[in-house]
Computed example of a mutant assay.
Amino acid sequence: MPSSESSHETARRLRREQTVAEKILWRHLRGRQLCNIKFRRQFPIGQYFIDFCSIERRLIIELDGGQHADRFADDEVRTTYLTSRGYRGLRFWNDQVLASADQVVADNEKFLSTHSPES
């Protein structure tokens, strides 16, 4: 597991180097705009860096580019680890955000409204 200092530096670098899709979605998530929930960008959990994370709701939102089509097994290991830590996750393709960010935001709102913090 990376040291805390290197983890913070990696998170900072990932925030500086966001994809276009991440920038678009972050505009909708920052400042408690989505259901008054605080999200963090490139949040470290164990050895993984989560695109967007709500600690209070134990929710992860991941955006995947084309490289994830070939990394299914790695993504499954990651998902299993995060689930074991009490997190639930939503995944979207970058193309979904680029084509229809409003629909991705609506999907997130629907999920949040139908899943209480305790469930």
Rank of each mutant, 00 (worst) to 15 (best):
M1K: 06
P2A: 02
S3Q: 09
S4K: 13
S6T: 12
S6W: 10
H8R: 15
H8E: 10
E9Q: 15
T10L: 14
T10Q: 12
R13Y: 11
R13I: 15
L14E: 09
R15K: 12
R16S: 14
T19A: 10
A21E: 00
A21H: 01
E22D: 06
E22A: 06
K23E: 14
L25V: 08
W26V: 03
W26H: 05
H28Y: 13
G31D: 14
G31I: 14
R32H: 12
Q33I: 12
Q33D: 06
C35I: 08
I37A: 02
I37E: 10
F43H: 15
G46C: 07
G46K: 03
Y48I: 12
Y48V: 12
F49G: 04
F49N: 06
F52I: 01
E56F: 07
L59E: 00
I60N: 00
I61P: 05
E62V: 04
L63N: 02
G66C: 11
Q67P: 07
H68R: 14
A69T: 07
A69M: 13
F72N: 11
D74F: 15
D74E: 15
D75G: 08
L82P: 11
T83F: 05
S84G: 13
S84M: 11
R85L: 13
G86N: 04
G86T: 06
G89M: 07
L90T: 03
R91T: 06
F92A: 00
W93K: 07
N94G: 00
N94K: 05
D95I: 14
A99Y: 02
V104S: 01
V105G: 02
V105E: 04
E109P: 00
E109H: 08
L112S: 04
S113V: 08
T114F: 07
S116G: 11
S116F: 13
S119C: 03
